[in-house]
Design a protein around this nucleic acid. Structure first.
Lengths: 255, 255
DNA sequence: AGAAAGTTTTCACTTGATGGAAACACCTTG
DNA sequence: CAAGGTGTTTCCATCAAGTGAAAACTTTCT
């Protein structure tokens, strides 16, 4: 996480607009006055800023329900995520974790502020399972994934936290180590009554193994030389727009 | 697409910042002067605006490579996409299309301006296949998906365009009709030498059938009453943060 | 070492952003 | 139906926030 830029070299109106954008995208959808209250701005200022966001389609406004995220946000968000090529790479590991453990599996990276962020997930197979979602932020402190993202992984290669941030939930996590250090965390999360010491002891090494496999694909493990990038899966963004895949003998046109 | 807000009720500095954000997210990653040239702003202005974006982690700046999308963009983008619950719903249909046709399959919605946007996709199984990606925008005009999104679906329920926007590529599309009309387009795209009249004639009705199934799940077909929402798949955003899924007997805490 | 290119800072200037208040529109209740 | 409450939009005097040219600084390349 690079140092913060100096606070004085900022632009207030942009800050305010970004705060509004964040509010709309994180569930604060609704009428104008509600958003103004949420963000703490005068209504006329809020309207003007939301108008600007709407003009460029970062938000849209419906007669019923008010403001919500616009197509531009989806486009740019998807393209930003596509820069994180870890997402498709993690798909097989996430699926395997669910198959082996039955619990919900997550790929997390460091998020805004002191948070971590789910970038990809696979739902557990049990009726009673942990329900997170892609894009969700959670505290680095006190979470298993947060711990490994902060570089606090014990020598055994994985860590677990029982009833940490929330009661009755246990998480097991292992770091995905890239060339620059810990790039992401691979974790499973489930109810504590299922993820007891015995289960944790079994799943921990599996997590470490799969995380290491992911890290190896990032070029993180110099002892294992990857001769070629693996084939992209069909999950989330398949091609990095900044570095499109080979045209595969045909022009890159779409319908 | 609602009417544009009045141009005079906008905020220039916000517009500029959003243009920079879009430039960074759509591949315009690089050093400061390059972004300034790209967007057509003075360097010092560009620096200040990018500093603001960086402060709130919409972009990050590396010593090598310059600016790129930040974690905030990924979080909000993912959450904005999660509002589009069509994405997970479309997963089975996309997979079935690939299985039946071997071609790349896409779910598209209306995007910014006169564009459409890939919201989800499944890659074709052939070595020579169409290569699009989630988040990619393409013109409504001249594309099969664009046609059906614009409401121009023939009575047969599907449409196709051969060598339209690009040579040697053919697309077949059918509309996903929701309560408010055409909500999305389901399409397959592949090389014209494979998608000839015969193949198109076979795949068109399949597309219409699957698109109708999707539309029915949106409550679009009032003749088919859905008694319950289908189970969410494990693809992209599984839970709408604004309307989280039932806690499934456990607190919604994450690691 | 010098030139070129990228980055950051400075500050006089002005205009763009602001927000309170009024006007307008819609909904609910007695 | 009228009054009250709430949400939305417009207006405009004000000033401070945003600007951008230029200088200073740093890094890279030949």
């Amino acid at each position: 996480m690079p140092g913060k830029p100096p606070a004085s070299s900022s632009t207030r109106s942009v800050e305010r607009a970004l705060a509004l954008l964040a509010a709309v995208c994180t569930g604060g959808t609704g009428p104008l006055v509600e958003l103004a209250r949420l963000v703490g701005l005068p209504v006329s200022t809020t309207l003007r800023l939301l108008r600007t966001l709407e003009q460029d389609q970062f938000v849209t406004r419906a007669e019923v329900g008010g403001y919500r995220p616009g197509p531009r946000m989806m486009q740019l968000g998807a393209q930003a995520l596509s820069h994180e090529h870890l997402v498709p790479l993690s798909r097989p590991a996430l699926n395997e974790l669910v198959e082996a453990t039955g619990e919900s599996a997550y790929l997390s990276v460091t998020g805004p502020g002191a948070t971590a962020l789910y970038l990809a997930m696979a739902q557990g197979t049990h009726s009673v399972r942990h329900a997170g979602w892609v894009g969700r932020a959670f505290p680095l402190a006190g979470s298993a994934a947060g711990s490994v993202l902060l570089g606090r992984t014990p020598d055994k290669g994985w860590t677990s936290i029982a009833s940490g941030i929330e009661p009755d939930v246990t998480a097991v996590a292992a770091p995905v180590t890239g060339p620059g250090g810990v790039a992401a965390a691979l974790s499973i999360v489930g109810p504590t009554y299922r993820l007891d010491e015995s289960a944790i002891g079994r799943f921990g090494p599996l997590l470490t193994h799969l995380a290491a496999g992911l890290g190896a694909q990032l070029g993180g493990d110099q002892l294992v030389h990857c001769s070629e990038k693996p084939e992209r899966t069909e999950a989330m963004p398949t091609t990095d727009p900044a570095h499109p895949a080979e045209p595969r003998t045909m022009p890159r046109e779409q319908r």
